[in-house]
């Protein structure tokens, strides 16, 4: 079979699309669904830019075929927050200068989102370990780590 119909949920919405089986999940969300927040860097699993969540776990979407997401819940950076209401991680990246050019940022956000879901109070080594698969050529990582630690704090604080 060279084409198949894929059924999954993307950012909470049911999706049914015919795709070429060689379509990577990254290309599927970008090209077929127009969700271009997921960025593609190396396309062979080295840079982490295309990281998104499948059934709540971070995966490199360039290393997964779209058809493998059959029946799965996919979350991209578009499902994290909105322009009007940023996710605490997005707000913290803004506040702490956790990005410069922004190319790697969606991947970092999704990797960090998985971390904070599993471990709401990570220490710095845990943050660095969780983000170790993502490359950033601008920031030197310090501000990204600071942003994730700050987001963990703001998410733990009781809502005003």
């Amino acid at each position: 079979m060279k084409r198949m119909t894929l059924h999954c949920r993307v950012n909470g919405e049911a999706v049914a699309r015919e795709v070429e089986v060689r379509r990577t999940l990254a290309d599927f969300v970008r090209e077929d669904l127009g969700l271009t927040g997921t960025h593609l860097g190396c396309e062979h699993g080295a840079c982490g830019a295309c990281t998104l969540l499948v059934d709540g776990r971070s995966v490199r979407s360039c290393l997964m075929f779209a058809v493998q997401a059959e029946g799965c819940e996919v979350q991209t950076v578009e499902g994290l927050g909105t322009e009007e209401s940023l996710h605490p991680l997005q707000q913290a990246f803004w506040d702490h200068h956790g990005l410069q050019c922004g190319f790697c940022t969606p991947g970092f956000l999704m990797a960090a989102a998985e971390l904070l879901r599993r471990n709401p109070h990570p220490d710095e080594p845990a943050v660095r370990e969780a983000l170790s698969g993502n490359l950033c050529r601008c920031t030197g990582y310090q501000n990204i780590v600071a942003a994730v630690l700050a987001a963990a704090e703001s998410m733990a604080a009781p809502r005003a």
Binding site: T24, E43, H44, A46, R60, L63, F65, V67
Partner: peptide, 21 residues
């Protein structure tokens, strides 16, 4: 898991006729 095979396929170092998932 595809973490070794898919990079090889993306780089076209591997071009299997059939992929058995």
């Amino acid at each position: 898991g595809g973490q070794s095979l898919v990079p090889l396929m993306n780089l076209r170092l591997a071009k299997p006729a059939v992929v058995v998932d």
